[in-house]
C-alpha cells in the first residue's frame, strides 16, 4: 500500500464527491426551501446523461453536446416543476414520496421507450482519453482530472452564487424560513422554478460527466439518488456548505473504504472472508456515518434553519 495508491484513491474520492455535490446541491435546496422530498431528482440525472449521449452523437462533439444537454435538462426540470411538483409542496412527505416515486416509474419507462433497454454509449472526448503523468510514478486519467476541474469550478461558482449574490440571498432566506421570506416580498414561486431548473442543470452536468465512466442506462439515477440523500442529511438539509462537506465526506469515505478495507481486513482475517467482507463494510460505511451523524447531531452538521 504505497502513498501513490493512497493519492490516486484520494483523487478518485474527490472526483466522486464533487459529482455527488452537483446532485446534492440541487436536492438540498429543493428540500430546504420547499420542504419537499423529490425522489425524481435522480431521474433528471439519468435524463441529462441520455440527452448528453444523443446530443453529442448528433453534433459530433462532446463540447457542443454538453451545454445543449445541460440547457435541455434544465428545461425538462422547470417543466416538471410547473406542471406537477408545484402541486405537491403543501402535501405531507408521504404523499411527496409516492408522487415522485411514480415519476421515477414514468421517467424510467419513457427513457426505455425512447432510447431502448440497452445501455447507451457515451465516449470521453478523444483529447482526454489517455492518462497524464501527475507525478513521477503517478499517472492519472485525464478525463477524471477534467471531472475534478469542472466539479471544483461549479462548486466555487455555486458557493459564490448562493453566498454572495442577491438571488442567492433570497434562496438562503427561503431555505431558512419560507413564510418569513414570503412575507418580506420574495416571489417564492418563481424563485423555486428557477432553483429547480438550476438543480436539474447541475444533475445534467453530473450525468454528462459521469456518463462515460459509468454506464448510461435506465435506473442509473436511483442508487446515486440515495447517496445524494445521505449527503444532504449528513450536511444538514438546505445548507449548500453542508452539501459540500457531506459530499466530500461521503465521496472520500466510500472510495477509500472500497480501496483499502479489503487490504486492511486481510491483515487479520482469512483472505476469502476479507475479500467478501471488505466491499460490504465499505458500502455500509457511509450509512453508518449518516446514522452516527443523525444520532449526535440530529439536524446534520450545518443546520440551515435558524
Amino acid at each position: 500500500m504505497s502513498w501513490i495508491l493512497i493519492l490516486e484513491q484520494s483523487l478518485n474520492g474527490l472526483q466522486f464527491g464533487l459529482m455527488l455535490f452537483l446532485l446534492a446541491a440541487g436536492l438540498t435546496l429543493v428540500f430546504g426551501i420547499m420542504d419537499m422530498i423529490n425522489l425524481a431528482h435522480g431521474s433528471l440525472y439519468m435524463v441529462g446523461a441520455y440527452l448528453m449521449a444523443t446530443l453529442t452523437q448528433a453534433s459530433g462533439s462532446y463540447w457542443i453536446g454538453l451545454p445543449l444537454a445541460v440547457l435541455a435538462t434544465a428545461a425538462v426540470g422547470m417543466l416538471l416543476e410547473v406542471s406537477i411538483l408545484r402541486r405537491l409542496y403543501q402535501r405531507d412527505h408521504m404523499t411527496q414520496v409516492l408522487a415522485t416515486f411514480a415519476l421515477i416509474l414514468i421517467s424510467n419507462e419513457l427513457v426505455r421507450i425512447i432510447w431502448g433497454a440497452q445501455p447507451v454509449m457515451l465516449n470521453t472526448p478523444d483529447a482526454l482519453s489517455g492518462p497524464v503523468d501527475l507525478l513521477p510514478g503517478l499517472s492519472y486519467s485525464a478525463y477524471r482530472l477534467l471531472i475534478i476541474g469542472v466539479g471544483l469550478v461549479v462548486a466555487v461558482l455555486l458557493y459564490f452564487l448562493v453566498t454572495r449574490t442577491r438571488t442567492g440571498m433570497l434562496v438562503r432566506a427561503g431555505a431558512s424560513n419560507r413564510e418569513m421570506a414570503t412575507a418580506m416580498g420574495v416571489d417564492i414561486k418563481r424563485l423555486f422554478t428557477l432553483v429547480f431548473g438550476f438543480g436539474a442543470a447541475l444533475c445534467a452536468v453530473a450525468g454528462a460527466m459521469l456518463g462515460p465512466i459509468l454506464a448510461v442506462q435506465v435506473g442509473m439515477g436511483e442508487n446515486i439518488l440515495i447517496l445524494a440523500f445521505v449527503v444532504i442529511v449528513i450536511g444538514g438539509i438546505g445548507s449548500i456548505r453542508g452539501a459540500l462537506v457531506g459530499s466530500m465526506l461521503v465521496g472520500v469515505v466510500d472510495t477509500i473504504g472500497r480501496a483499502f478495507l479489503p487490504h486492511l481486513f486481510r491483515e487479520f482475517l482469512p483472505p476469502a472472508m476479507a475479500s467478501n467482507l471488505g466491499p460490504a463494510v465499505a458500502s455500509i460505511l457511509i450509512y453508518v456515518l449518516m446514522a452516527g451523524v443523525l444520532f449526535w447531531k440530529p439536524q446534520g452538521l450545518f443546520p440551515a434553519r435558524g
Binding site: 445521505v230 442529511v233 455500509i284
Partner: peptide, 28 residues
C-alpha cells in the same frame, strides 16, 4: 435508534438502515 429522530430524518435513517441490510446480504 431511528425513533430518536423525527420527520424527514426518520424517513432517511430508516432508509439508511435498510440499505445497510441490503449491502450486508449482497456480501453474504
Amino acid at each position: 435508534l431511528s425513533l430518536r429522530t423525527r420527520g424527514v430524518y426518520f424517513i432517511m435513517i430508516t432508509l439508511a438502515f435498510a440499505q445497510m441490510m441490503y449491502y450486508l446480504f449482497i456480501s453474504l
